[in-house]
Write a protein that binds this DNA or RNA. Structure first.
Length: 457
DNA sequence: TCCGTTACGGTTGAC
DNA sequence: TAGTCAACCGTAACG
């Protein structure tokens, strides 16, 4: 069932919940499931009955940044409740899930919400309750918690981009050497030798097909140096620094608890154990997200071309996720943008009221949230019956804004204690060994990826 | 009712 | 510069 709400020039589709649409579950095999999905193309995706209660304008939060208009959905996503308009088109759009929560399809939830999910979970609140309270799908809650349990990070992974090339000049050189030494060598044998010789490790060894392609394209004629070799001699380099890319730069592989989550004062807790899914230069890197680069640059920790590189990255990301953490004077240790974000994310009379002040705010500056995320908290969490209704939050007594750091140490159940000592520089943790997943940690600073204001006091 | 899992449609960024 | 690809996202639905 689907109906369209029209409001002036605005109109969007709102569909009823799945129960009303698909009826009894097909139950049974995956085929049935798939068929059902096929026949019932997720009618509820574009919204829910709850969405009707949402404000029509999910414009970015207050102030002069508020959008004066709310136009219809963007052309690309006619069904979604989206914002439009000159500015809205570039900064605001979003959809409403069945719980009434606002989200941007394809984009991560704001770190503030992610953080709340973890925090609430650590307070013993069940995921289903968290889901309702934050109006985030339970699948998402589950995923975020699972990720957090696994990596200690609440941050989303790096979106987009490509994996680092494994066919580095050094690898190519070795392949050529192997081929020259044994023209009859098979690609898989080369692969084995690359591993055996330590040129590559199991995570970055080229595939057989890649080796074959190299042999075909780059080492086609062994009698003469390939164009690559002839043109430039790659500097000697160690085995492809896969670890440099994927490895958790943990101080000790046997000390998974080396890093403590959070710190009382350190809220921008720098130490920490936030990991990032990929650590090759990514716009989604924790550093970029959090503006750590800026900090590091300011402290001279990041210098030279690398800094420049990251600088560019930061610029790129400013439009979406990347916090344009300017090197502007901080306010009480908190960058102004962050403060603004705090304001924007402050939960109003929604079900989050109890935790509204629990978290500072989304780490994303409003300008990076494409509207939805930068909308006032009350907008992000669609208004609706408070959850739990007329019930004081269990968090309220213990958690309040500004005390996040003190209250939430993010001590992972399976992890060790939390340090109370604020750590000012990003620290790495020994959360997990290098894995193909390429989860790299970052300082808790990055912890939740939030510029959580030091609780001071 | 809860929750892990997964298909899906979407975004992103490197190539 | 546009297209492709593969990563990621959150939601909705299944079991």
């Amino acid at each position: 069932m689907k109906f369209t709400l029209g409001l002036g020039s605005r109109a969007w589709s709102v569909s009823w919940g799945r129960a009303a649409v698909i009826g009894p579950r097909a139950g049974g095999s995956a085929l049935g499931r798939g068929a059902q999905r096929f026949c019932s193309p997720r009618p509820a995706r574009r919204g829910s009955r709850l969405s009707r209660a949402l404000p029509l304008c999910l414009s970015r939060g207050g102030g002069d940044r508020a959008l004066p208009d709310c136009a219809g959905p963007s052309p690309g996503r006619p069904g979604a409740r989206q914002l439009a308009g000159p500015r809205a088109m570039e900064q605001t759009y979003g959809e409403v899930n069945q719980l009434g929560g606002v989200f941007v399809n394809g984009r991560p939830l704001p770190n503030a919400i992610r953080l709340r999910i973890v925090e609430l979970a650590q307070l013993g609140i069940r995921p289903c309750d968290i889901s309702r309270q934050l109006r985030v799908s339970h699948g998402c809650v589950s995923k975020i918690l699972a990720r957090y349990n696994e990596t200690g990070s609440i941050l989303p992974g790096a979106i987009g981009g490509s994996k680092p090339r494994v066919t580095t000049p050094n690898v190519v050189k070795h392949i050529r050497d192997y081929k020259q030494g044994d023209p009859g060598i098979f690609a898989w044998e080369i692969r084995d030798r690359l591993l055996a010789d330590g040129v590559c490790d199991k995570y970055n060894v080229p595939s057989v097909s890649s080796i074959s392609r190299i042999l075909r394209n780059k080492i086609g004629s062994l009698a003469q140096p390939g164009p690559y070799e002839a043109s430039k001699q790659p500097p000697p380099q160690p085995a492809l620094p896969y670890n440099h890319i994927y490895q958790y730069p943990y101080p000790s592989p046997v000390s998974p608890t080396g890093a403590k989550m959070g710190s009382h004062h350190g809220v921008p807790a720098t130490a920490g154990h936030v990991s990032i899914p990929r650590s090759w230069p990514s716009a989604h890197s924790v550093s970029n997200i959090l503006g750590i680069r800026t900090f590091m640059e300011q402290t001279g920790a990041l210098a030279g071309s690398e800094g420049a590189t990251y600088s560019a990255k930061m610029e790129d990301w400013a439009s979406v996720n990347r916090t344009a953490f300017p090197a502007t004077p901080a306010v009480n240790g908190l960058d102004k943008p962050a403060l603004e974000a705090d304001i924007k994310y402050t939960q109003s009379a929604s079900g989050l009221s109890a935790v509204g002040g629990f978290l500072p705010a989304c780490a994303y500056p409003a300008s990076n949230q494409h509207g939805v995320y930068s909308a006032p908290a009350g907008g992000y969490l669609a208004p609706g019956p408070p959850w739990p209704p007329a019930q004081a939050s269990p968090l309220a007594p213990t958690v309040h804004g500004g005390e996040l750091a003190a209250t939430m140490t993010f001590k992972h159940p399976s992890r060790e204690a939390v340090t109370d000592t604020p750590v000012l520089l990003p620290a790495v943790t020994d959360r997990k060994p290098p894995s193909p997943g390429g989860k790299a940690p970052d300082g808790l600073s990055t912890l939740h990826g939030l510029p959580i204001p030091a609780s001071t006091s």
